[in-house]
Simulated assay, not measured.
Amino acid sequence: MKVVVIGGTGLIGSKVVAQLDAQGHQAVPAAPNTGVNTLTGEGLAEVLEGASVVVDVSNSPSFADDAVMEFFRTSTGNLLKAEEEAGVAHHVALSVVGTDRLQASGYFRAKQAQEDLITASGMPYTIVHATQFFEFMKGLADLSTVDGTVRVPPAKFQPMASDDVAAAVARAAVATPVDGMVEIGGPEAVPLEEPLRTALTAAGDPRPIVTDPEAGYSGAPVEESTLLPGPDAELSTTTYADWLATQQ
């Protein structure tokens, strides 16, 4: 089965391609550096020829509110149109747990717009909602730093390894479309500050971390459970401690 992976040269996409290839499928990475640009439409018709499934794990190069909205609206619209013309049978998109609860953030408003385009398209689809990746703990700390101090809300989240995210996306790609959303998350629900502190300690980063009720997440206010998946989520088994040990 031919599966085109949009964003297929990135962190998640390259892993999805490798996993699908290992299962005997024809996984084709599609990204600007392979001649496929979903914003302009360049290369879409050619790469989608003969494809049964499209997996979209692409992300905006800019997180500024207007730019990220333009990226997801334009790229998703172009992709869905090209899929219809090519006779693609299943659209799989990677999104984020809590997207609908984080609409004060420009990034998550754009992700919601992406999801709305998919659900309204008439294309058979599966949207995979994932929690934050272990790989982004230091980046999350950077985004949360104010005057040299990392300030995080008193919320819990359930991060997971990118390998496990990719495995779930690959499973969705070869399964029957659910015409809905599936949730995936890590094995442990922990206070947001804990893995950030572990990540900074492992990196020798001396920044203090403070739990601040006024702090948000990507610019959006959160409650304790805003970032957590629901009770029916598929949970991975790789813990942050186990993953961190493999990185060292």
Rank of each mutant, 00 (worst) to 15 (best):
R197A: 14
V190I: 13
G7W: 02
G148R: 09
A82S: 14
A120D: 14
V210A: 10
F63D: 00
F133V: 02
V17P: 05
P177T: 06
A215S: 10
S62V: 07
G98E: 08
Q19W: 00
A220I: 11
V36K: 07
Y217L: 09
Q158F: 02
A31R: 03
F157N: 14
T9G: 08
V16Q: 03
A175D: 13
L228I: 12
V165Q: 05
R109V: 02
F136D: 11
S14E: 12
K2D: 07
L94Q: 14
S62M: 06
S62F: 06
T211P: 01
P191E: 07
P153F: 09
L79M: 12
A166R: 07
G186V: 06
T38Q: 05
E84N: 11
G8H: 03
S144N: 10
M1K: 06
P229Y: 04
E183Q: 15
V182F: 04
Q247N: 08
Y125G: 05
D179L: 02
G50A: 09
P153H: 02
G106N: 08
T201G: 02
E49I: 00
A203E: 12
V97N: 09
A168P: 08
V28T: 12
V96Q: 13
A89F: 00
A51E: 06
T38M: 07
S105I: 09
E84G: 15
V92A: 09
P229E: 02
